[in-house]
């Protein structure tokens, strides 16, 4: 057997999700301090994206280990004990398992198309639904801690919504950070639109969350909440608008340049310097630009060669051969006879 170096041990552990589980557990303890104002029993846990990401990147099992073990570690260290909420260990594990399965079945390693993006985000949402659903069923069957319908509003729905939104926002960010997004026009566009969506979701969430701090039964508090909502909306509209202008320009600017270049080729001007920056892009537009440059270059070359040939076109006549041919014809009796007769016709 090969001796195990520290590095390979580390790699093995991370591959099996063990290291990530520890990280997840520590993050859980930290975030247990934070709770949603409207649902105090549910902690704010944006780290739910972690088991999902491990599922996507390393597979269903490491994803499950990260969620399951991480939740357990967090509970133990926090003092809940290992077995009190064991159904939530399983639920957390599922949030890693489901994305892992989805990526495996759909054959997604990197995000390359809108289809990939859709499957990834759908897997995020489905994993949250499955997790919460399983936790509830297990409780109903074995634990009997939840009460209905109270628990539904206080626990279940907020847990699902918050986990789903966190995953929805953070998973693509992690894909970007891990350089697992192939930047194409398609991914660029879907990420742009999604980021605008996220801005909108965040603005409403922030507004609502903030408003929840106050007791909204007084008239003044309600007015303040509405003002606040207005200010947040204006800021978000400005940010969203400015960023969409930027992104739209990033996409349509090169298209305009390419179109102008193509038109110049059609006119026979071959003004292709202007698309040099586009050619350096790695996406479809970059490829289109390089193809256009190559093709135009070839056409230009061919045209130049032809033009040169045309300029050198000469009508060469072999005078000697011509004189010989003429003499052969003119020398015949028939021709001499014909010439005499023609003179007569023409006189008439």
């Amino acid at each position: 057997m090969q001796p195990l170096s520290v590095k390979t041990v580390f790699q093995k552990l991370s591959h099996w999700g063990l290291l990530w589980a520890v990280l997840y557990g520590l993050m859980n303890i930290l975030s247990n301090q934070l709770t949603l104002p409207a649902a105090p029993a549910i902690a704010i846990r944006p780290q739910v994206a972690l088991p999902m990401i491990i599922g996507f990147f390393y597979g269903p099992l490491p994803g499950f280990v990260t969620g399951f073990l991480g939740n357990m570690i967090g509970d133990v260290l926090y003092g809940y004990g290992i077995g009190q909420f064991w159904n939530w260990h399983i639920a957390n594990g599922l949030m890693g398992l489901v994305p892992g399965l989805a990526a495996m079945l759909a054959g997604i390693k990197v995000m390359k198309t809108v289809r990939d993006f859709g499957i990834i985000e759908a897997a995020v949402v489905v994993s949250c639904a499955v997790a919460v659903g399983v936790a509830v069923c297990l409780d109903l069957l074995f634990i009997h801690l939840m009460k209905f319908p109270e628990s539904f509003n206080a626990w279940i729905l907020p847990a699902f919504i918050f986990n789903a939104v966190s995953g929805f926002i953070l998973v693509p960010v992690f894909f970007l950070l891990a350089r697992r997004v192939v930047i194409t026009l398609e991914t660029r566009t879907i990420l742009t639109i999604t980021s605008l969506l996220v801005v909108a979701i965040l603005s409403t969430s922030i507004t609502i969350t903030w408003a929840m701090h106050d007791d909204l039964t007084s008239y003044n508090a309600l007015v303040n909440a509405i003002y606040f909502a207005g200010i947040v909306s204006v800021i978000m509209v400005i940010i969203g608008f400015a960023s969409s202008i930027y992104f739209v320009k990033r996409i349509t600017g090169p298209v305009t340049l390419l179109t102008e270049a193509a038109v110049s080729v059609e006119k026979g001007e071959y003004d292709l310097e202007s698309i040099q920056p586009v050619s350096r892009r790695t996406d479809e537009l970059g490829q289109l630009s390089r193809v256009l440059q190559n093709m135009a270059g070839e056409v230009y070359q061919r045209e130049q060669t032809l033009k040169k040939q045309v300029e050198q076109l000469q009508i060469r006549i072999d005078r000697k051969k011509m004189d010989q041919d003429v003499a052969d014809i003119v020398g015949t009796d028939y021709f001499q006879d014909l010439r005499e007769k023609v003179k007569e016709f023409r006189k008439k």
Partner: peptide, 12 residues
């Protein structure tokens, strides 16, 4: 054509 032109000239 050079031959034809020349012959035609001779035929006026």
């Amino acid at each position: 054509s050079a031959v034809t032109v020349e012959v035609s000239r001779q035929l006026e």
